[in-house]
């Protein structure tokens, strides 16, 4: 991969910092009227999730990171690795627990997810914003209680536990917002 000079930094650019691929979350050009130019960057380390700020001088550069996001289909988990497939090429990728992280609780076989590849290895898995999952366990629904407050925990087919309204029954399919982990509606 090539180098990119600090003057060309842009939000969303992926670069190598201290050996790890990082995403530029925010880029700000800083220059006093009299004095040197700097580029202040908020970075997120894609391996560790650490977010911090780093300032570059105008003559500095960074190595671009071979990082790309690809849409894939979730196949199955063998207990140790999670397996995904590129639908157009049928190419399969295996992601470890570190890459899948919290996403595992939203993974349903056959669902589309976004896989972040670094040097062709999955380093992060991003679920769709909304998933539809079946309730496998919850207290019996309260008839007639359709809108008024109150909630209870429900366990979903993937093992995730979410707060749901009291009227939800076991076996129902629910729409969940994966960004907040909150119940949205019946599917």
């Amino acid at each position: 991969m090539g180098n990119v000079s600090s003057g060309q930094f842009k939000t969303g650019m992926k670069v190598m910092i201290d050996g790890d691929p990082c995403n530029m979350v925010e880029v700000e050009f800083v220059k006093p009227g009299k004095g040197q130019a700097f580029t202040r960057v908020r970075l997120r380390n894609l391996m560790t999730g650490r977010i911090w700020e780093r300032t570059f001088k105008s003559n500095e550069s960074a190595e671009t990171a071979d990082v790309m996001d690809r849409d894939m289909e979730y196949l199955y988990s063998d207990g140790e690795m999670w397996h995904f497939m590129e639908p157009s090429t049928f190419e399969q990728y295996a992601a470890d627990e570190k890459a899948v992280a919290d996403c595992s609780q939203w993974l349903k076989e056959g669902d589309k997810v976004m896989i972040t590849l670094f040097n062709d290895n999955p380093i992060a898995v991003t679920p769709p914003n909304f998933v539809e999952l079946e309730v496998t366990e919850t207290d019996p629904g309260l008839k007639g209680d359709t809108a008024q407050g109150g909630s209870k925990p429900a366990t979903l087919s993937t093992g995730a536990v979410v707060r749901v309204p009291l009227f939800i029954n076991q076996g129902e399919v629910l729409k969940i917002d994966t960004r907040t982990g909150e119940y949205v509606s019946r599917a």
Binding site: V30, P32, G35, W52, R54, E60
Partner: peptide, 25 residues
């Protein structure tokens, strides 16, 4: 003064560079 907030992993012998950084950052 800068390091706790901004990583500035470069060397520069020009004091004004650091004054400008503290000022602007």
């Amino acid at each position: 003064l800068l390091e706790p907030h901004f990583e500035c992993p470069f060397t520069d012998d020009r004091k004004d560079t650091w004054l400008e950084l503290v000022m602007s950052h």
